[in-house]
């Protein structure tokens, strides 16, 4: 792999039927590239949680994935309401998801913690009323 591979995905607003499609596509592509299963698992968990967060909280958004020889970088950006208290949001079990989301099996307050746990680097830039950009890297 000499050049970086760049992939872009759109995550639709409130579309739970399509949430996971971007993660699924990345999983297939990484498999075809021969990336180790444990690396694929980290990428997929981190990205799926990000996708679900964008659907639940941010009216969707965009994901850009860049694959280079040494790492996979995922940038998830949305124009949602922003995260009011990032420290709280990073705590396992803290959630602002509404009841209808909880009844689907989400909203357990594990989204951002899982994203941090399964990526080797994570940065969250958020501004109330403007949106959030999460950058995650998984080392190859």
């Amino acid at each position: 792999m000499t050049d970086a591979i760049k992939l872009e995905y759109t995550v639709c607003n409130d579309d739970f039927t399509r949430a996971g499609e971007a993660s699924s596509d990345i999983k297939d592509k990484l498999k075809k590239m021969g990336v180790a299963p444990e690396i694929i698992r980290k990428v997929v968990i981190a990205m799926y949680e990000g996708e679900i967060n964008m659907v639940i909280h941010a009216n969707g958004g965009k994901i850009t994935v860049t694959i280079t020889t040494d790492k996979i970088t995922m940038v998830l950006s949305d124009k949602g309401p922003g995260i009011e208290n990032i420290e709280l949001a990073m705590q396992e079990g803290y959630s602002t998801a509404p009841d209808n989301i909880r009844s689907l099996g989400f909203g357990a307050g594990m989204g951002l913690p899982n994203m941090k746990k399964y990526s080797d680097y994570m940065d969250v830039q958020t501004q109330l009323g403007t949106g959030t950009t999460v950058t995650m890297q998984v080392n190859l």
Binding site: F16, A19, G20, I45, Y48, I52, G105, M110, G111, N114
Partner: peptide, 27 residues
């Protein structure tokens, strides 16, 4: 809980759940 299943379910699992929706399939 789908977030927990996402991070903990082993490959090749026989996954027993009462959560029957489209996201269960994705996970």
């Amino acid at each position: 809980l789908l977030s927990l299943a996402m991070s903990k379910s082993p490959a090749g699992a026989a996954w027993v759940t009462v959560m029957g929706n489209i996201n269960t399939l994705a996970v």
